[in-house]
Simulated scan of single mutants.
Amino acid sequence: RKRLWTLSTILLLLGILSNTYDYILGYNRFFPFLWPDYLGYFLVGYTLKSHAPQRSLPALSLYGLSTISLFFASRYAFEHGEGLYFYRNLSPLIVLSAISLFALFVSWGGCGGKLARIGKMQGDILGIYLVHIAVLNVVTKILVLTTPSLMQCAWLNIPIRVGLVFFVSWGVVRLMKRLPICRYLV
Rank of each mutant, 00 (worst) to 15 (best):
F102L: 04
A103K: 07
G127I: 07
A98Q: 09
I99D: 00
C111L: 10
K114H: 06
V106G: 03
R117T: 12
G110N: 06
Q122H: 07
L104Y: 07
L104V: 06
D124W: 00
R117L: 11
L104F: 12
I118Y: 05
A98W: 03
F105M: 14
S107Y: 02
F105H: 05
L104D: 00
W108H: 06
L126H: 14
W108Y: 08
G112P: 11
V106W: 05
G123F: 14
I128G: 10
I128Q: 13
D124E: 13
G119Y: 05
A103R: 02
V106C: 01
W108Q: 06
G113M: 08
G112N: 09
I128L: 14
W108K: 02
M121H: 10
G119M: 04
G112C: 04
G112Y: 01
M121F: 09
C111Y: 06
G109A: 13
L115K: 14
G109P: 03
L104M: 12
K120Y: 10
I125N: 01
Q122T: 15
W108C: 06
I125Q: 03
I125W: 15
S100W: 05
R117M: 15
D124H: 04
I99M: 05
A98I: 15
K114R: 10
R117H: 06
L101S: 11
G109T: 11
C111H: 08
Q122R: 15
F102P: 05
G109E: 12
K114D: 13
A116L: 00
Y129D: 13
A98N: 09
G109C: 07
A98Y: 00
A98H: 01
L101D: 10
F105S: 00
Y129G: 15
Y129K: 10
W108F: 04
G119C: 08
A116G: 05
Q122L: 12
K120I: 04
K120L: 11
F102N: 01
R117W: 08
Q122D: 13
G113F: 04
A98G: 15
C111K: 15
G113H: 03
G110E: 04
K120N: 14
G123K: 15
G123A: 11
G123R: 10
S107T: 06
A103V: 07
W108N: 00
K120Q: 12
G127P: 12
G119F: 01
L104P: 05
K120C: 11
C111F: 01
I128M: 10
M121P: 12
G123E: 11
L115R: 12
R117I: 09
I128A: 10
A116F: 00
G123H: 12
A116I: 03
G123Q: 09
L115N: 06
I99Q: 03
F105E: 03
F102V: 03
I118A: 09
L101H: 02
W108D: 11
K114P: 00
G127W: 06
G110T: 04
G112Q: 08
G127F: 02
I118E: 05
A116T: 03
K120A: 13
C111S: 12
D124I: 01
K114A: 15
I118G: 04
